[in-house]
């Protein structure tokens, strides 16, 4: 098969359908995944193809959905539990963090929990404070959970397919702002990318590390910077656990300057974790402090203007890079 143009949403659906055809143990369960087709349409029509025993519409009972997926995974199924919004993690953290993540370890390796929790997060739809968060730090702070956050169409497909072969629970966090984004899907691409970061744009002047939808804001910023002669290297992490430090480290040692960009709020999050790791492994190579560009430490407001203002934009990323590398005064600087 040759590469095709498709959307992030359709690539995810293809991954689910292909996985279900390849492995009859794969079942999907969650709110509105069947007849409705998924709140964001990812599971559309799958119930018609695979039946109600494999595409299971559940009551609105998030803790029991994830708990049932844990039990199913321990009983020979490979469930894909859909958590409609990552914000609902508040409902399910016991089943995720105390059960799914720890069962293999607590039970001395007797059994694992090979399930995928598909969910989506992020801003962009004025969905307000309880439907717009970026909560990957909650997941990454729990040993035992693998965490993937694909940005591109091709990664959406391949990372999900790979997640459905792993022996451990995977939290697969999509971005609601990416579902309609188009890109190239090559199903025959080699499946070696799980846990590996990728350099999306090479550059010599600084390294910007990011993931999920912020990749595209960062790439737009890099384009702007290039026009004025500043070459930023952009790294897309893709997976947060396992985390590919080698790609980051090699880049920062070469460029000597590093920025981290996340949509998630700054404090106690992935931006802090990444900055700490870069500092630890690149201390002697750094010309400047490692700078974090992250979401404001506030709940997400509903007003589109406020929502946009609360997360990094291409302009903020570009101006921060200019300040870091060329000491150019940013537009937001006050006298």
């Amino acid at each position: 098969m040759t590469a095709i143009e498709t959307t992030y949403r359709d690539a995810l659906r293809e991954a689910l359908a292909d996985a279900m055809r390849a492995d009859e143990c794969v079942v999907i369960m969650g709110e509105e995944v069947g007849l409705y087709g998924g709140a964001y349409g990812v599971t559309k029509n799958l119930i018609a193809d695979f039946g109600a025993n494999r595409v299971i519409d559940t009551p609105i009972s998030e803790p029991a959905i994830i708990g049932a997926a844990v039990g199913a995974a321990m009983s020979g199924l490979r469930p894909v539990a859909e958590l409609m919004y990552v914000d609902f993690a508040g409902m399910v953290m016991d089943q995720l963090a105390n059960q799914a993540a720890k069962i293999r370890y607590m039970f001395g390796g007797q059994i694992g929990v090979p399930m995928v929790l598909r969910t989506q997060g992020g801003t962009g739809r004025s969905a307000a404070a309880q439907h717009s968060q970026s909560l990957e730090a909650w997941m990454v702070h729990t040993p035992g959970l693998r965490v993937a956050m694909p940005a591109t169409v091709n990664d959406a497909y391949h990372l999900l397919r790979h997640a459905l072969t792993l022996p451990d629970p995977v939290v697969f966090i999509e971005h609601k702002g990416l579902y309609t984004r188009k890109g190239t899907l090559d199903k025959d691409a080699p499946d070696a990318d799980w846990g590996r970061a990728v350099v999306r744009r090479p550059g010599k002047d600084l390294t910007i590390v990011t993931y999920s939808r912020m990749l595209f804001e960062t790439l737009a910023a890099a384009e702007t910077l290039a026009a004025s002669g500043l070459e930023a290297e952009v790294i897309d992490l893709r997976c947060l656990n396992p985390m590919d430090e080698e790609t980051m480290t090699a880049s920062v040692r070469r460029t000597g300057r590093a920025m981290v960009v996340t949509e998630a709020v700054m404090t106690g999050g992935l931006s802090a974790e990444l900055a700490a790791r870069i500092q630890e492994s690149c201390f002697d190579f750094l010309e400047e402090p490692v700078v974090r560009v992250a979401g404001e430490d506030i709940p997400i407001p509903v007003s589109p203007a406020l929502e946009r203002g609360s997360i990094p934009s291409a302009q903020l990323i570009a101006e921060t890079a200019d300040l870091l590398v060329r000491r150019r005064t940013p537009s937001w600087a006050t006298a």
């Binding site: 299971i56 029991a64 708990g67 049932a68 844990v70 039990g71 321990m74 009983s75 016991d94 039970f107």
Partner: peptide, 29 residues
């Protein structure tokens, strides 16, 4: 947290109610 898959013990649980939904998944399987 004692468990033994050979004897069908899917696990003791220290979260009150934590192990209850696991039988739903087992039952589905």
């Amino acid at each position: 947290h004692i468990a033994d898959m050979g004897l069908g013990h899917l696990g003791a649980n220290a979260i009150v109610g934590g192990g209850i939904p696991h039988i739903i998944g087992a039952g589905l399987a």
